[in-house]
């Protein structure tokens, strides 16, 4: 069971090119949680999932990294806002009588 994945594992096991890993970090699609130098980077599995999503979008939609990063950024925002909206609605329901 894993909650984090090392840079090396991401390249070898997940078969992601080293240059691609650097790109996803450069465009803030995923951020390493530990490690100062590249070789000791570790990523959260949640971010690994975003990386795979980014790679699928890049391949299937045939778009450049800036477009991929923009989509991922908006998807993250949308997910976070949907979650906040759900939580606030729930709190409002508790606080106000019908």
């Amino acid at each position: 069971m894993e909650l984090q994945v090392s840079y090396q594992e991401l390249c070898e096991y997940d078969e992601i090119d080293e240059a691609v890993v650097l790109r996803v970090v450069e465009y803030n699609i995923a951020a390493p949680v530990t490690g100062r130098d590249v070789a000791s980077w570790h990523f959260r599995t949640t971010d690994v999932s975003w990386i795979h999503k980014a790679l699928r979008l890049r391949r299937d939609l045939d778009i450049d990294w800036i477009a991929v990063a923009t989509i991922i950024d908006l998807l993250k925002q949308q997910q976070s806002l949907a979650e906040e909206n759900r939580r606030l609605r729930q709190q409002l329901r508790r606080f106000f009588s019908e």
Partner: peptide, 17 residues
Amino acid sequence: NVKIPVGISEGERIRLK
């Protein structure tokens, strides 16, 4: 049968290789 670690939070992903 999966061990769920203490402090797991909403949206996290657990990978089972």
